[in-house]
C-alpha cells in the first residue's frame, strides 16, 4: 500500500508541478491594451449624417474556389457576368478554400498559394461543404435553399433579389497610406436610419487582390498556365467573422448619425525564403472590402458592402 501511495503521489505531484509552471511566452505577441477601434471610436455626428450621400445597396458574392477545381473558371465567369449586368453594385471575393484536391497549388505549375487560414475559417463558418465551386450571395439563407452556401447557377437570381433591399447604413473606406511595406486604412460606418432594437451588427474588413496570373485547371480547356485571377481573398483585417459594432451601456446603439470608425495598419506580406509557393502580395493591386453583417446562430446576412481599389 505504501508503494501504491508513493507512485500515486509522484503522478499527482507531476500534475501539480506542471500546473505551477505556466508559460507566458506569448504575452509580448498579444496587444491587450492597444487600439480597439470598434468601441473606442464610435460617436453620433449629425453633421456627417446631413452631408453623407445615400449609397445604393451593394451585393457581396463569396466564391469558394480552387486552382485545381475544374468548374471554378465557369463560376468566375458567371460572377463577371453578374457584375457587368449590375455595374458598381456587386462586390466579389474569390476565397480559395475547400477540399485540398481542389485548392492545393499544383506542383510544377503553380507559382502562388492562394489558400489562407482566414479563408478556411470563413468557409467553415458558413458551413461550406468543400465541394467546389460553391458560394454565397450576401451570406443570405434564401428560401428554397438548404443552406447559405449555394451552387453558381442561382447566384444571378439571388443577386437580383438582394439588390431590391434598402439599407440603413453607408460605409466609407479611406486609404491613408499605401506603399510596398505598409497599408493604413480608415473604415467608417454611418447609420442613416435606426435599426430594430436587439439587432447586432458586425464589421468585417478583408483584403483582396486583382491581376494575379497563375495556373488554373479548367474542365473544358485543361491546364491554363496564365489564368488571370481577380479579387482573390488575401487576408482579414478584422476577425474573419467580423468585429462587433457595439457600444457598452448604450440603449439603442444603431440610431441615425451613429458612426463607427476603425483604423488598420497592415504590413504588406512578403514572400518567406524557402517556401515552396509564393504569397504574391502586390500592394499595387489590392482592394479593401468592408462589409457590415449580422451574426447569430443562424444568420450571417450581409447588410451592405463597399469595395475600394487601392493604389492603381
Amino acid at each position: 500500500m505504501k508503494t501504491h501511495s508513493i507512485f500515486l503521489g509522484i503522478t499527482l505531484g507531476s500534475f501539480v508541478l506542471m500546473h505551477s509552471c505556466f508559460d507566458d511566452s506569448a504575452r509580448e505577441l498579444i496587444n491587450l491594451v492597444g487600439f480597439d477601434p470598434a468601441s473606442d471610436t464610435t460617436y453620433i455626428d449629425l453633421d456627417t449624417l446631413g452631408l453623407a450621400s445615400p449609397q445604393p445597396k451593394r451585393v457581396y458574392i463569396e466564391d469558394f474556389t480552387g486552382v485545381k477545381c475544374s468548374n471554378c473558371p465557369d463560376a468566375a465567369k458567371k460572377i463577371e457576368a453578374i457584375k457587368e449586368t449590375h455595374p458598381g453594385r456587386v462586390v466579389a471575393m474569390a476565397v480559395h478554400a475547400g477540399a485540398e484536391t481542389f485548392t492545393n497549388p499544383k506542383t510544377g505549375h503553380s507559382t502562388y498559394d492562394f489558400r489562407t487560414q482566414d479563408g478556411n475559417n470563413i468557409a467553415s463558418m458558413l458551413h461550406a461543404s468543400g465541394n467546389l465551386p460553391e458560394g454565397a450571395v450576401d451570406r443570405k439563407f434564401f428560401e428554397g435553399e438548404t443552406g447559405i452556401i449555394t451552387s453558381r447557377f442561382v447566384w444571378a437570381g439571388n443577386t437580383e433579389k438582394r439588390l431590391l433591399e434598402s439599407i440603413p447604413i453607408c460605409i466609407d473606406i479611406q486609404e491613408e497610406r499605401l506603399d510596398a511595406d505598409t497599408l493604413v486604412l480608415l473604415v467608417r460606418v454611418l447609420y442613416k436610419e435606426a435599426v430594430a432594437t436587439g439587432e447586432q451588427h458586425f464589421l468585417a474588413v478583408y483584403l483582396s487582390q486583382d491581376s494575379l496570373v497563375d495556373y488554373q485547371y479548367d474542365i473544358m480547356l485543361g491546364d491554363i498556365e496564365d489564368y488571370a485571377f481577380n479579387h482573390v481573398f488575401r487576408a482579414s483585417l478584422t476577425a474573419y467573422s467580423g468585429d462587433s459594432l457595439g457600444v457598452a451601456n448604450a440603449g439603442d446603439v444603431y440610431v441615425p448619425g451613429r458612426v463607427f470608425q476603425k483604423r488598420f495598419v497592415v504590413p504588406i506580406k512578403r514572400d518567406a525564403a524557402g517556401e515552396a509557393f509564393k504569397t504574391g502580395w502586390d500592394y499595387r493591386f489590392l482592394n479593401a472590402v468592408a462589409l457590415v453583417h449580422k451574426k447569430t446562430m443562424d444568420d450571417f446576412e450581409v447588410i451592405h458592402v463597399v469595395e475600394k481599389h487601392l493604389k492603381r
Partner: peptide, 20 residues
C-alpha cells in the same frame, strides 16, 4: 487571430496545456 478580436475578448494564449 487574437489581436484581431475586440479588446475585451483578447487573451494571452499559453503554449502548454496540462491535464490531470
Amino acid at each position: 487571430a487574437i489581436n484581431a478580436m475586440t479588446r475585451e475578448n483578447r487573451f494571452v494564449p499559453r503554449a502548454n496545456v496540462y491535464g490531470g
